[in-house]
């Protein structure tokens, strides 16, 4: 019997009032894959990520995790998810370490302090661990956010524009972290406008437009040098570059 995909969407629709952000979307996400999702602003990419990470419920359709409908899963299932969003998900008045320890306590992470320090070293913020995060730059906040998302060693990592605000050193560091996660058989979904980085890491490529998937290829089927023109053609003109 064929193994069920780690995550499967079946005819998912998400409406906000009269506006459909995601329309009749079906997609299988196998374990250990890296799916890069491209698309112009308003294509429904972030909404799709919110649906997949259980932050919002679809208006209709079904999400299956390893063949089990999302509605039947326990709250503890969310410990499989790690989310890096537009927003850092950190408290201004707490230090980087305190933020990580707080989230570690919610995720039941053992030796929270040591784990927080380990990840702060990984994102190169260990020396600033006791500073309140309100004193951090946008890029530093994003690095704390990356550490927070990896605290509990999630099986599925959802990234929404994770390179936003990162300088080139921090970007390279994030790319390395994502490669490490892939080697550890983690499943990654990344929404990005950065075609080059997305293609570099992805094993599957998706383009969304107006709430639908209009392009889906395995990475091996994509010619990287011609992808930008394919993207512009599919996503609808130069403004689609984001």
């Amino acid at each position: 019997m064929e193994k069920a995909p780690l995550v499967a969407l079946r005819g998912v629709v998400k409406r906000y009032g009269h506006v459909a952000a995601v329309k009749d979307l079906s997609l299988d996400i196998p374990e250990g894959s890296f799916t890069a999702i491209f698309g112009p602003n308003g294509a429904g990419k972030s909404t799709l990520l919110k649906i997949l990470s259980n932050q919002t419920r679809p208006t209709s359709g079904e999400i299956l995790y390893s063949g089990v409908p999302a509605a039947k899963l326990e709250d503890s299932f969310r410990s499989k998810f790690g989310v890096i969003s537009h927003q850092p998900f950190v408290y201004d008045n707490l230090s980087a370490k305190e933020n990580l320890e707080f989230y570690a306590s919610l995720y039941g992470v053992k030796n929270a302090g040591a784990r927080a320090c380990e990840l702060l070293k990984k994102v190169d913020l260990y020396t600033r661990r006791d500073d309140p995060v309100r004193t951090f730059s946008r890029g530093m906040l994003q690095r704390v956010s990356i550490a927070r998302a990896l605290l509990h060693d999630p099986a599925i990592i959802f990234l929404d524009e994770p390179y936003t605000g990162l300088d080139s050193v921090a970007s390279a560091s994030l790319t390395n972290i994502l490669r490490e996660q892939l080697e550890g058989r983690k499943t990654i979904l990344m929404v990005t406008h950065d075609l080059k980085t997305g293609l570099e890491l992805a094993s599957r490529v998706v383009i969304m437009k107006k709430g639908r998937i209009i392009y889906f290829r395995e990475r091996g089927e994509v010619d990287a040098s011609a992808f930008e023109s394919v993207y512009l053609e599919q996503a609808g003109g130069p403004e689609a570059a984001g």
Binding site: S53, D75, V83, Q87, Y91, D92, Y107
Partner: peptide
Amino acid sequence: VSEVQGGNLEALLLSPVDR
């Protein structure tokens, strides 16, 4: 307000605890 700033409420609701 501290829960809205930085999207912390979303992060709390993402955690694997009963909401």
